[in-house]
Amino acid sequence: MGRHESRVDDYERSGRLLDDIEGAYATRTGDLVDGGPLTDFEETVTLAASPDPGSDYPPPGHGYPRRD
């Protein structure tokens, strides 16, 4: 049987994604993340990795990723 990722696994992965987006932003702009404009990709990853408080998790139609 495959292993199911836990909420902790998801939280840690989301943290790594957000750290990497900050690094990409700093590389692209030469500045730390300061509320400046994000690319469409940066915005999509940011919103996916840190959904609005109170939103359904996982979103309707999606489950936790599985590693088989």
Rank of each mutant, 00 (worst) to 15 (best):
G2D: 05
G2L: 06
R3T: 14
H4G: 01
H4M: 12
S6N: 08
D9T: 00
D9N: 15
D9H: 15
D10T: 02
D10I: 07
D10W: 12
Y11A: 15
Y11C: 08
E12H: 04
E12Q: 13
E12N: 01
E12R: 12
E12D: 08
R13W: 03
R13M: 11
R13Q: 04
R13Y: 03
R13H: 12
S14P: 00
D19P: 01
D19T: 08
D20R: 13
I21S: 01
I21Q: 09
I21K: 08
E22A: 10
G23I: 01
G23V: 01
G23D: 11
G23C: 12
A24I: 03
A24V: 07
A24S: 14
Y25P: 02
A26F: 01
T27H: 13
R28Q: 09
T29G: 09
G30P: 07
D31R: 12
D31Q: 11
D31P: 00
D31M: 03
L32K: 08
L32P: 02
D34R: 04
D34P: 00
D34V: 00
G35K: 09
G35D: 03
G35T: 02
G35I: 01
G36R: 02
G36E: 02
G36S: 09
P37C: 01
P37W: 02
L38K: 09
T39L: 04
T39C: 03
D40M: 07
D40N: 02
F41R: 10
F41P: 00
E42S: 03
E42H: 05
E42V: 03
E42N: 08
T44Q: 11
T44N: 06
V45S: 05
T46K: 12
L47W: 02
L47K: 13
A48F: 11
A48G: 07
A49E: 06
A49I: 13
S50F: 04
S50Y: 05
S50L: 12
S50A: 14
S50R: 12
P51H: 06
P51V: 06
P51F: 05
P51S: 08
P51N: 06
D52W: 05
D52V: 10
D52L: 13
P53G: 04
P53Y: 15
P53C: 00
G54C: 13
G54S: 05
G54A: 10
S55Y: 05
D56F: 04
D56M: 10
Y57A: 11
Y57M: 10
Y57Q: 15
P58L: 13
P59N: 09
P59G: 04
P60T: 12
P60E: 15
G61D: 15
H62E: 11
H62K: 15
G63C: 04
G63K: 14
Y64H: 14
Y64V: 08
P65W: 02
P65F: 04
R67I: 14
D68H: 12
